[in-house]
Design a protein around this nucleic acid. Structure first.
Lengths: 339, 339
DNA sequence: TACGGATGTGTGAACGTGCACACAGTAGGA
DNA sequence: TCCTACTGTGTGCACGTTCACACATCCGTA
């Protein structure tokens, strides 16, 4: 019935003409203002009839708003895939943004070259704001954002973060204390930790919490320091610990992926979990339930973190100043079979 | 030294004035055309001095090009996280697009409501093209794309895909034949399959390949049909198979995640792998090396699939018609320990 | 009657860019 | 000498929208 209507898209002019009104009134229907009921309904039917969709580029040009927010992930690609956490954060942010009619544009920073590309992109007016995850200490992006005064929010917070940039995170110290105390409560006394990513706040804080919870039982020798939160690091770290202290009876792995790797190393060394060694992880990711035995771990509300960061950016875009600069989300302990 | 320069961004006018030339010449420097060497260098220094970045919105408005390509993933969120494959495809596409100065915008389709949102988005001129992964048979998005005549490419191809829309994929049938023949070559005779996602080309093709390779040995009873390519489905499917045929000695899992789940079910039933049962997967994802024993599987070039789809869209944007409508990438067998 | 406010509508001017066109100068060939 | 082709540059307009402003109408009240 209807013609294929190949490329012509309806504009405000077209629907104004169809409704017998002016461009201004159409604009007011879209953006709010005084419009009579008849005018509004006439325009709305015209819009559905002609299948009107506002032209984003024109709107962006005039309003100086792109309706897009960058999601900057500072991770090597491989880790991006290996760590389900970051994916969940991204999905949470995406959901919150699209609910507010904003588009998420994801940028992966891997090399220094990428860093420049992203800086140029952020300063190019392509986005109205930015969500940054897993930034490092002394990350150049922190300075870029400060200089641009671009509305932003961090997931996690590097210690040198600008005071005015809001962040959302979890209480890594408190969570580490809680899970370590759980290990202690099951009677473990020679407890080690596979600590990862010590160039980031999350890594440092988990180690500090562990140290604080153990008190006199803490032994520097029982810390294995690995670069990433991944499976391979877990295998390596656990082998290391076993060599240094064969009598080890408890391990706090800085992530579930690391715990899974540790489990493998323990199995290969003939130790049973939780019989010989109690093992706990961190994240409550899909890893936790995949393992045999399933992992006792700290639940990290990844989706909520992303959503919360998105809200923080959106609030700034609405001109509101975030009443809380930093926000910490709760992290319940999840008790399963590994400790 | 330089003033903070709070919000004013340089425009073509500004650099034209700074270089003592006209807007037109600046535009020609940016987009090609006759420009003298002196004029070009004068403009280029003015651009770097003023930190000029072209205004995307204005350019998009004028050229009717957004320089953005949608990445449409038709997956439940949970699967998006569970399946590393799709993440790798996304990263491959992203890399190829940003190399060509295009932005990738990822859209996750989960519910029918999402479907409408995406259709509206695609028809809204926000993107110049679309990459679609894991579309279902009779997916409404196929019709939307055909109607819009939007440059697109599919990863994988539903049988009812429009003849003119290019796709890239792997030879699922051939790969399934190859891996099944490997199982046969190790002496297995009662071979079952955990088949998944039979509403998609990949799922159907893997099953068909399996059937073809087995010939007379094929037994309908030894097919467990599960909905998704995930771990949980693997556990369930394998339990099912074990109950139907305790003497089963080989299993082809439709994905590595499924194989990992199957491994768990086999362990729980006291069967050894590869001793009692030979097990093979599909994807060569991180799952394959995490398992104990590591999985023999089919390597799926996920990143390349994404990159290839991106190229197909870019070619169309350049006005070239893709010389090959469909392209299949090679999938080498990876022999490890599980069979 | 006149006035001020609330409500409703139309109009012109931008936003920053690319492109068609006009124009100018030079060189080569008939 | 004139015509054409090529190189190089400037100018006006349009892309589709929003926003400030002007204008018009209606009401209640001084």
């Amino acid at each position: 019935m209807s013609r294929p209507q190949p490329q012509k898209r309806a504009t405000v002019h077209d629907i104004a003409a169809a409704a017998g009104l002016s461009r201004g009134t159409v604009s007011r229907v879209l953006n709010g203002g005084y419009v009579s009921a008849e005018a509004r309904s006439a325009i709305e039917t015209a819009m559905t009839d002609l299948g009107y969709v506002p032209n984003n580029a024109a709107r962006a040009l005039k309003t100086r708003r792109s309706q897009a927010v960058a999601f900057v992930a500072h991770e090597p690609h491989s880790l991006f895939l290996d760590d389900p956490n970051i994916g969940a954060i991204m999905l949470g942010a995406n959901a919150a943004l699209s609910l507010a009619d904003h588009q998420m544009v994801s940028l992966v920073v891997e090399s220094t070259r990428d860093n420049e590309r992203v800086a140029r992109y952020l300063s190019g007016g392509f986005v109205d704001g930015a969500i940054v995850v897993s930034a490092r200490t002394k990350d150049p992006i922190i300075k870029v954002l400060s200089d641009l005064a671009l509305p932003a929010a961090f997931v996690g917070h590097p210690p040198d973060l600008d005071q005015n940039i809001p962040f959302v995170g979890i209480d890594n110290v408190g969570s580490a204390v809680a899970i370590t105390e759980h290990l202690l409560s099951t009677g473990r006394r020679r407890i080690g930790m596979i600590a990862a990513a010590l160039d980031r706040d999350s890594g440092i804080d988990r180690l500090n919490g562990f140290r604080a919870a153990l008190g006199d039982l803490f032994d520097e020798e029982l810390i294995a320091d690995v670069p990433h939160y991944d499976y391979g690091s877990g295998v390596k770290g656990m082998r290391d610990l076993l060599q240094r202290e064969p009598a080890i009876d408890g391990v706090f792995a800085a992530s579930d992926a690391i715990a899974a790797g540790a489990l493998e190393a323990l199995r290969e060394a003939g130790r049973s979990v939780p019989g010989d060694v109690g093992l706990v992880g961190f994240d409550d990711s899909t890893w936790a339930v995949r393992c045999q035995p399933q992992l006792t771990t700290v639940h990290q509300p990844a989706k909520e973190l992303g959503a919360c960061a998105a809200q923080m950016v959106l609030r700034q875009l609405r001109g509101e100043h975030p009443e809380t600069v930093g926000q910490l989300l709760p992290t319940p302990l999840v008790l399963r079979d590994s400790a």
